[in-house]
Design a protein around this nucleic acid. Structure first.
Ligand SMILES: [Mn+2]
Ligand SMILES: [Mn+2]
Ligand SMILES: [Mn+2]
Ligand SMILES: [Mn+2]
Lengths: 228, 228
DNA sequence: TTAATTTGTTAGTCATGCCTAACTTTTTTA
DNA sequence: TAAAAAAGTTAGGCATGACTAACAAATTAA
């Protein structure tokens, strides 16, 4: 993807919609994304998304047929990736230099990602010596928008006896992140699946000295690399 | 001024209006500030300022009588000072850590000053080890909004033979700041007034090896401390 | 001290981005 | 395959923060 001297004219809202679409389409679990799904994700009404999508279509960032599913153009995707890059670089800065905890960084990064200055974000990246992952283990796209997405294996997809390493967590919920820390899990933790209970899909896991039972919902937000 | 756990509900616009009023009233040269003056300063129409002032009056940040001059309440002033604090801390960060030049910092700081996070700005200040002045020589208010304003002596107010030291410059204009650097002036430069020409108020100054003629307008934007 | 000029106010308009309520189309299920 | 449910769209409103044009009050100058 070529690096343009892209003076970004988009509003904060337009940026947020494109980022949300990207997260659902590319980083999310669903292959197709509809209007109402986007609305729910952004916590706005379907009428609002319908309206914004219309605008983003005339600006050629989104494509869709009437009553059809949504897709991003290359341009739209590029804008989204740059936003994610900014978000994750800021999260890294807050975490590594300003004493923020990993459950505090996301909300402030949601604001900082909209600051318009190419130089700012590139210099911030240089200052931090080109970090590759944010505090939640997510990859940081480079200045050209190159995005080395590591396949997201959910902890919930493993089976009894499997051993894995925690490589990333979903960072959207403060409560979830606090919960993860509290039970003692962290990036790189080695986790063994002791039991997957058929009744409610809850999972007994072991890590270090600890043994915990986690829900399916919890396990859906934990991404791992299988070791055994 | 007591430090409240002020969850700031103001919009970016409301913040900008309060800051502008503060800059005109407290940091500016004019004792009284009217609606049209504020409009000109903010580059919006008088109708817009009139409208916003109305809102800020109901919110008790501004006081004025109909057809009368504008004033800030203690609350309004406090909000403005905190904004200036954020602006100057960000400028300092950009200048000292991210390789920004002193003519580049202002525009980006105009965006960053609206980021809402008490922790962010206090941690940034700690990270930089509590700087007291921004890259243009202006004082940075502390976390309680205490504001040690140094009396602003304009270079244009001095007379032939006077010697002074450059302590600050107005940071609003990129062109002006570039101009200052280009002729070789910098913070702490010692300047001697060689001649003030009656005809057009232009001033011949000497600093280091250099002798330059500057306009009245230029000299109005340079703040000094008289040495002799 | 009246007339001209400046300053301030009001009314009406527009764009953005959100909403609810009503409607249409598509998909699912019986 | 027809009815029910879900998904998507449209119409109409509201708040914010801009604008212009017309008007009123206050200040300045003649
Ligand atoms: Mn995040
Ligand atoms: Mn993250
Ligand atoms: Mn500035
Ligand atoms: Mn400054």
């Amino acid at each position: 993807m070529t690096n343009k001297l892209n003076s970004n004219n988009l509003t904060k809202s337009e940026e947020d919609y494109l980022k949300a679409l990207f997260q659902l389409l590319v980083e999310g679990k669903s292959a197709k994304v509809g209007n109402n799904q986007l609305a729910e994700y952004l916590k706005v009404s379907p009428a609002s998304t319908n309206n914004m999508i219309k605008k983003l279509k005339t600006k050629q960032y989104v494509v869709s047929e009437k009553y059809g599913k949504l897709d991003l153009t290359k341009e739209g995707e590029y804008i989204a990736v740059r936003l994610i890059r900014k978000h994750r670089l800021w999260e890294t800065f807050l975490y590594n230099y300003l004493n923020f905890t990993w459950d505090e960084v996301h909300d402030v990064a949601e604001q900082l990602e909209h600051i318009k200055s190419q130089k700012l974000i590139n210099e911030l990246e240089r200052f931090m010596e080109f970090p590759t992952k944010d505090p939640h283990g997510e990859m940081i796209p480079n200045a050209d928008g190159e995005y080395l997405a590591i396949p997201k294996v959910m902890l919930s997809s493993l089976s009894e006896g499997d051993i894995c390493r925690l490589i990333a967590v979903d960072d959207g919920s403060v409560n979830f992140l606090k919960y993860v820390s509290e039970i003692g899990l962290a990036l790189s933790s080695e986790i063994k699946i002791l039991e997957v209970r058929e009744f409610d899909k809850s999972i007994r896991i072991q890590f270090g000295e600890a043994i915990e039972t986690i829900t399916r919902k919890f396990a859906d937000n934990v991404f791992v690399k299988k070791v055994v």
